[in-house]
Design a protein around this nucleic acid. Structure first.
Lengths: 156, 156
DNA sequence: TCTGAAAATGGACCTTT
DNA sequence: AAAGGTCCATTTTCAGA
């Protein structure tokens, strides 16, 4: 189980994964070795999924973020699995959620321009019989972006 | 400007930010010092926004991902800015996009349970006159999650 | 590109609860 | 046992020649 030390560590490394273990140690009041052990353990257990660099899309030629909602025809497991796979494999799809509500999927795309998005639309949606309808929202402003889980120490 | 070496480096560190610079060097065919310089430069320029650890929400008591779309009453700049600010400050909101299309905002929440979400809903939406309507989609499956920009070397 | 100093990581080992 | 601390070897980073 996770204690407050772990929770604090997770908070820190979600904000900045480059903080050194000795710096983390002073911040959470542990020895560097203990920090090392805890990080290592959480990584092994999958609590820490992975470490990553967040790239500014507009600085590398991908200024467009597009969000799609999709409704499917059939919710048969094997048909859905094929769809999910095709979304997973598409590098321009950053995120894919299978949801309950008015829609079945929510997708977030990172693309160079609208033409690229339209092309993907053709490949992924129009040529797929199981897509009943979809809607497109174009992001004008990425107000907040991240995957931070709001873990917080229970006391302090 | 970014050349193919930079592009490859970005690809690598988006996948695993812990890859050592010497390992990166062999992968992209550069000296470790050159890799160091390039990473440092891209971080300074903001091409690399930051380094982060991705935490598995379900392993730390945040198993619920909820997606909301919002339509506002007024799109007056100052009113919008206040809304954006309130979303930015809410730790359970991982992502917020200001969009064009049928809706004005798309929000992605990471919460402990539905009660927590309902509470936020009251605070953020019901007590805000500028929220005309909103819709909720509950994620049953986070099929793909990340913020990877699909940078790819132009040849090879 | 190479070399080397400073820093960070992570294991060994002992101590505490 | 389980977890913390100290010490030390190895690896990594990163600046200067």
């Amino acid at each position: 189980m996770l204690d407050n030390f772990d929770i604090k560590l997770l908070g820190e490394i979600q904000q900045d994964a480059q903080t050194s273990q000795s710096e983390l140690a002073t911040r959470v009041n542990l020895s560097p070795a203990a920090v090392n052990r805890r990080l290592r353990k959480m990584a092994a257990e999958g609590v820490i999924d992975r470490y990553t660099a967040i790239v500014a899309p507009e600085k590398v030629g991908y200024p467009l973020t597009v969000i799609c909602t999709i409704e499917v025809e059939s919710e048969q497991i094997d048909v859905l699995d094929v769809m999910k796979r095709s979304f997973e494999l598409c590098p321009q799809i950053q995120q894919c959620y299978y949801v309950a509500g008015e829609w079945d999927f929510v997708l977030i795309f990172s693309v160079r321009h609208m033409d690229e998005f339209n092309l993907l639309t053709r490949k992924l949606f129009f040529s797929n019989d199981n897509v009943k309808r979809f809607k497109t929202l174009v992001s004008m402003n990425r107000v907040k972006v991240g995957l931070q889980v709001p873990v917080a120490a229970s006391d302090e």
